[in-house]
Write a protein that binds this DNA or RNA. Structure first.
Length: 756
DNA sequence: CACCCTCGAGTTCC
DNA sequence: CTCGAGGGTG
């Protein structure tokens, strides 16, 4: 029958996984999945005791023994815990306990985090750490004394503070060895720096670390430990769980944070949601909570079922990690052309949802984790909801897995994929790539951009596919007729959409700039541009001028470039080869050196010097200066560096983009900066520079205040600067102000000037 | 040149 | 939310 079949399956699976875990140290499923299988078997067996067989994993305690270590006999059995997966499970646990105890016995509890680490038993004799062992099979464990002694949070002698003593004659404590999240990350950074494979799972790594033969390796890794239980002792009397924790803390052990007393189970149940929501903010991994009967005598009276004491139970959180198969990798192209690989997974249920897709971030990461197509991979879904692949389970490889490489050609436009010099990511270089165009329009209408409601990705896709629009400019020419033809578009929906488009014509200039999707220009940079330029037209004319000046400069430099490329180029030219490269894209290389007035930066000086040696200086200086002058409106903006200036100029000087702008302008889309209503013009004609942290306002607020009164805020001090507003721990600008004799003022001075 | 900070871009599921 | 890149500063 079916049930019998299922229990057999579960038994076989579990036994195999136990073998993988304990003998091979190479588990192919996560602990959480193991727990699920185990729980299912346990439940079936409880309902149908006739199905229990001798080889059932429920009939023995798990074991982490390996052959390579001497063994230590535990003073008493190291028990595990029964699991609860719901509030009902907890309630029935308490009911059963109440039945076993004399009527009207009051039960109170201690709630502790269930740490996701490795159980160890440590024995102290007369206060000195003498033995440490892994849990093993619960009776006998591996002797890891030398390794445990390297864990800094475990005292070698107790009590740590002498006035808390004396230590009992003998005490064996139980605790959990683990990596703090930040330590585990640091360890992985070290691995990466050394070109070694990354560790996927903190718990398995902690286990491997503790079982190192060479304790120097253990010492080099930042393990930590929490101690939460006194297993056995001579010369110590404890009545409650709480006293036990207090005792451990007094002795100088780190006890699990947030281990608290609650008078009733209901109090604990109330805590569960809070505790679960805090899970991701903790510095260490926990996979649930442990609830213990506080009264140790009662707990003892309750006894043990199988290997689980009745006096405590583990409340397990839904799994955040699961393993599944990587069945494919799809290529995603963003509006900038950036390619991101996405994992296609066999559906897997993690913390409440079924996951089929997960980001793989980039191909570098895939390579460093050595993820291959067909691999069993571990997928994690943290509190932030977004699932990602944390690594492959190399133990379950069959050999048929294939490496994952970036595509050679864009799957949407067929263009060869490029990887810019030194970049991690790959790109489709074609701005007219259909996927990129779609993504661009999708971005254009999205919230934060032009915010056109009723135009989701699917609608955008359909409109483009039907040829109703070809770029974002066409949106403003939409008419009801073709829309009504579309599926699921009735009069009402069309009306709403058109109204929303109409509203989008009146967005502030900054929002329009953001929507254009210029590489590197988001909301913040768009604000900067909008406050410096009165309109899109000004941006275009500046960009055109810069572009022309840059072309003129390159033309002037081209004889030099050609000469340098000539195989017969002389030595002098070869020396200036690198500088010649800079001539190709003068904007990126030279422009930012000019922000502080007319001074020539050192890099430029070097270039000019080498050009002078070649006798080419004269004809280059004028075009260079012309270019700098043309670009001034952009480069004087603090926050814009060479790359952004380049991106902005390129975008606005582009014919195609200008076409889109023209289309939108024609349709009545706002292209002007909103007339700012000034509070006063007390600061008219003055230029301010801010430096340091102001006592009561942010830099933005101060800037706004200045601009509201007709003043200007710039990024750098020059002779033209009227005042330098100096806050706390000012930078070099204060010094510069002193050098140039520019007066400095405080926030209060400013407030006085505008009369606030 | 190395470091720190901020901004932008991309991402999943319901 | 996370990562990478750009910009600024010491």
């Amino acid at each position: 029958m079916e049930l019998e079949q299922r229990t057999r399956e579960l038994r076989e699976q579990l036994n195999y996984h136990i073998y993988r875990y304990n003998v091979l140290s190479d588990p192919i499923i996560t602990d959480a999945e193991y727990d699920r299988l185990y729980h299912e078997l346990r439940q079936l067996e409880e309902e149908h005791p006739e199905l229990i067989t001798l080889d059932s994993p429920t009939q023995r305690a798990g074991s982490d023994l390996s052959e390579d270590f001497p063994k230590i006999q535990h003073p008493v059995s190291v028990l595990s815990l029964a699991n609860a997966f719901s509030v009902e499970d907890l309630r029935s646990w308490e009911e059963r306990n109440q039945r076993l105890l004399p009527a009207d016995t009051d039960l109170d509890y201690v709630l502790e985090p269930k740490l996701d680490g490795l159980t160890v038993v440590i024995t102290y004799e007369n206060g000195i750490l003498t033995k440490a062992a892994t849990r093993g099979n619960g009776e006998v464990g591996d002797d890891v004394t030398a390794n445990i002694k390297t864990v800094r949070t475990i005292p070698l002698r107790i009590p740590v503070h002498r006035d808390k003593g004396p230590a009992p004659e003998r005490v064996s404590v139980r605790g959990e060895v683990l990596f703090f999240k930040k330590d585990f990350e640091a360890l992985n950074q070290r691995q990466e720096a050394e070109g070694l494979p990354l560790y996927v799972n903190a718990r398995n790594t902690a286990s491997g670390t503790l079982k190192q033969k060479d304790s120097r390796i253990t010492a080099s890794r930042p393990l930590s430990a929490f101690i939460y239980d006194v297993l056995d002792s001579v010369g110590l009397k404890l009545d409650t769980q709480q006293e036990m924790l207090d005792f451990l803390q007094d002795m100088g052990f780190h006890i699990p944070p947030q281990s608290n007393y609650y008078p009733t189970l209901s109090d604990i149940i109330q805590q569960l949601p809070t505790r679960e929501s805090l899970r991701d903010s903790l510095d260490y991994e926990i996979d649930g909570l442990v609830i213990k009967v506080n009264n140790l005598h009662l707990a003892n009276e309750l006894g043990v079922v199988g290997k689980d004491p009745r006096g405590a139970i583990a409340y397990k959180f839904p799994a955040q990690e699961a393993s599944t198969k990587l069945i494919g990798v799809t290529v995603n192209i963003g509006r900038t052309g950036k390619i991101t690989p996405t994992a296609q997974l066999e559906p897997v249920f993690i913390s409440g949802v079924t996951v089929v897709n997960a980001s793989l971030h980039n191909y570098d990461l895939i390579a460093s984790l050595d993820i291959r197509l067909g691999d069993t991979v571990i997928v994690k879904r943290s509190g932030d909801v977004i699932p990602y692949v944390i690594g492959p389970v190399t133990g379950s490889r069959t050999g048929s897995e294939t490496p994952i490489t970036p595509p050679e050609f864009c799957p949407f436009s067929g263009d060869p994929i490029i990887q810019p010099e030194g970049a991690v990511d790959y790109y489709c270089p074609n701005p007219r790539c259909p996927e990129r165009v779609f993504r661009k329009v999708e971005f254009f209408v999205s919230r934060g951009a032009m915010d056109i409601e009723g135009m989701g990705p699917q609608t955008v896709k359909t409109l483009i596919e039907k040829g109703i629009i070809t770029d974002e400019g066409d949106i403003f020419y939409l008419t009801p007729e073709p829309l009504l033809e579309l599926e699921k578009f009735a009069q009402k929906k069309v009306d709403n959409l058109l109204a929303s488009i109409e509203a989008a014509k009146h967005r502030p200039l900054a929002q329009l700039i953001t929507s254009l999707g210029i590489d590197g220009v988001g909301g913040t940079i768009a604000e900067l541009l909008a406050s410096e330029f009165q309109s899109i037209d000004e941006l275009i004319s500046t960009s055109e001028a810069v572009k022309q000046a840059a072309v003129a400069f390159r033309n002037a430099a081209s004889p030099l470039i050609e000469a340098a490329e000539n195989p017969g180029a002389n030595q002098l030219l070869a020396d200036t080869q690198r500088n010649i490269e800079r001539l190709r894209n003068p904007l990126i290389e030279l422009v930012p050196r000019y922000r502080d007035g007319q001074e020539i930066g050192s890099r430029l000086q070097r270039l000019l010097k080498s050009l002078e040696a070649y006798g080419a200086l004269d004809e280059l200086v004028a075009p260079l200066q012309a270019m700098i002058r043309a670009a001034q409106p952009l480069i004087r903006i603090e926050g814009l560096g060479p790359i952004l200036v380049h991106n902005i100029v390129d975008w606005f000087a582009d014919d195609f983009n200008q076409g889109i702008i023209a289309k939108m302008k024609q349709a009545g889309v706002n292209m002007e900066a909103e007339a700012r209503t000034l509070s006063s013009n007390k600061l008219e004609g003055m230029t301010f520079v801010l430096t340091g942290t102001l006592p009561s306002m942010t830099r933005e607020e101060a800037s706004a205040l200045i601009e509201n009164h007709g003043g200007k805020v710039t990024g750098s001090v020059s002779k033209k600067t009227s005042y330098v507003l100096v806050g706390d721990s000012p930078g070099s600008k204060a010094t510069k102000a002193a050098q140039l004799g520019v007066p400095t003022i405080s926030e209060n001075d400013l407030k006085a000037m505008v009369g606030v």
